[in-house]
Design a protein around this nucleic acid. Structure first.
Length: 300
DNA sequence: ATGCAGTCCTGTAAGC
DNA sequence: TGCTTACAGGACTGCA
């Protein structure tokens, strides 16, 4: 039953869509969406973080989906006539393509009626995301300029990365989740990358040695590549009819594991607050000391 | 300029 | 049992 394949990430207290989850949504939707015609759209009354304007309803009619991709955590649906939909899932956003007779769930905000008896649905419990309509490349580019997205980890120039860290006295964890410095990481993968690189989340960015900074950048890319391979991280409340959730939650080393032993060194994982976000780390593997990986352990 | 806290929003769970 | 409170955090605003 591939036609009911869904890409859903219901988010609860311990998960939200970061780059790997967004990439998974895009990959799932691509074969379902591309080539379909947008026939109509209906929108709910509740305001979203990125609100859909009712005046767009008329303008999307008759346009077809040509492509779907993403930039950082933004999904871009390319339409005919140089138009596009720009979607952000926020924390609890779900973008699914389903048969139009599929049961309508709570918190559904947008239904795009598609050719072939399908619907593209946007559901969002906490309404931190939304869908925008753009016409012309210029409009889309202007939008992206306004959010000032840094490069994704695998496209980040090593020297620029080191320079960014050297110039900042902020906690490294805070810098990692700042989309204008490096894009794609959220709280989960920032914690995971720091653990993999053996760096304490509260360390000042400028205190990292060049090898540490380089290792961190590499770790960020690896952590997210592995998460994509596992279809992202889904912890609870997965609502899909397809069973196609993420599997990466089984591979998390520190996130959400407060009080559990570190799988690498056995010490108990700790949670602290940094920049208003919870940060999980292993006091054994992630030393506060510069250039020192907890207890001089050799890390894989 | 820089970096921090506050804001939005709802469901879940802990605490009394 | 039922209420209140805290917490989850991506992107943005405003303040020091």
């Amino acid at each position: 039953m591939p036609w009911i394949m869904m890409a859903e990430f219901v988010r609860d207290s311990s998960s939200m869509p970061e780059l790997p989850e967004v990439e998974t949504v895009v990959r799932d939707l691509r074969p379902l969406l591309v080539g379909r015609v947008l026939l109509d759209v209906s929108n709910g009354a509740k305001r979203l973080r990125y609100p859909w304007k009712p005046t767009w309803n008329r303008r999307i009619r008759g346009l077809s989906v040509e492509a779907i991709g993403r930039r950082a955590k933004f999904i871009i649906v390319g339409l005919t006539q140089d138009a596009s939909l720009l979607i952000h899932l926020g924390m609890t956003g779900q973008l699914t393509c389903v048969p139009d007779d599929e049961i309508v769930a709570d918190h559904l905000h947008l239904r795009f009626r598609l050719s072939g008896g399908f619907e593209l649905r946007y559901r969002d419990i906490r309404r931190f995301g939304g869908v925008e309509f753009h016409t012309g490349q210029a409009s889309l580019e202007k939008r992206f300029e306004s959010v000032a997205l840094g490069p994704e980890p695998w496209l980040m120039d090593g020297d620029n990365w080191v320079a960014s860290l050297m110039a900042s006295s902020r906690a490294i964890k805070s810098l990692l989740i700042d989309q204008s410095t490096i894009s794609g990481l959220g709280n989960i993968y920032a914690d995971e990358a720091l653990h993999r690189a053996g760096i304490h989340p509260a360390r000042q960015a400028k205190s990292l040695t060049r090898p540490e900074s380089t290792a961190l950048l590499q770790a960020a890319g690896c952590v997210m590549e592995e998460a994509i391979a596992g279809r992202g991280t889904t912890l609870r409340d997965y609502v899909g009819g397809s069973g196609l959730g993420g599997t990466h939650q089984h591979s998390l080393a520190v996130y959400g594991r407060e009080g559990e032993p570190c799988s690498r060194c056995g010490l108990i994982i700790i949670r602290i607050m940094i920049a208003g976000r919870s940060s999980h780390f292993c006091p054994g593997c992630q030393s506060q000391d510069i250039g020192k990986r907890g207890g001089n352990r050799v890390l894989p």
